[in-house]
Design a protein around this nucleic acid. Structure first.
Lengths: 95, 95
DNA sequence: GTAAATAGGTTTATAATATAAACCAAATTA
DNA sequence: TAATTTGGTTTATATTATAAACCTATTTAC
């Protein structure tokens, strides 16, 4: 009846991060911060979790002299996102 | 960009309960338990929360000699559910 | 008739989670 | 060179989800 929801994606901020990256393929930390309205601390923690799960890959580089964290969604992340959306529909379809 | 998600509805079990009641208009505790696969304790707690928020009304009655808990969604509950679904779409629409 | 099992839940304890506050280092500006 | 800003990370706290333990009444088995 109700399909289980991936707890990693069933989180407001993590879902927003993934949603951005599904469209963008690549985004910098400050951009994600701005778009989601999250605090840097919260964002850092949630990106770590998505990265640890293999849903994101995180590249730490430099932009001029300043550090720059770039995030991209992985194929597994995209699959997980699509599965999550599919599962969600079992809750939202009001017959 | 991303609309906030009602934390009361952004919960797997509570969302399942509400989803059932949007379709059914009325359901007994054991039926909800069976359909959601939740434990009785968890279900009891989550129904209380939805009820405390005014999203559900809970009628405690008897079926023969045995206690029977009936749940119905309220107009505010329905509104909240619809708003939640609308908000969710801001996360799911992959352009 | 009474012991055990079942129905229908509620209360309570625990573990996980989300979140922001505090913090840090380097670069820039005053 | 002091203060501020950028770009984050680490840590502490408060909330939350969840199941275990529990309770009462009824039914079934002996």
């Amino acid at each position: 009846m109700f399909e289980p929801l991936d707890p990693l994606l069933h989180s407001e901020l993590r879902l927003a991060i993934m949603s951005l990256l599904v469209s963008a393929e690549e985004a910098e930390f400050p951009y994600i911060k701005e778009q989601t309205g999250a605090t840097a601390g919260n964002l850092s923690v949630q990106i770590d979790k998505l990265s640890a799960a293999g849903y994101l890959e995180v590249e730490k580089t430099f932009k001029g002299k300043r550090p720059c964290t770039i995030c991209r969604i992985t194929p597994e992340g995209l699959k997980a996102f699509e599965d999550y959306v599919k599962a969600l529909k079992s809750y939202l379809q009001v017959k």
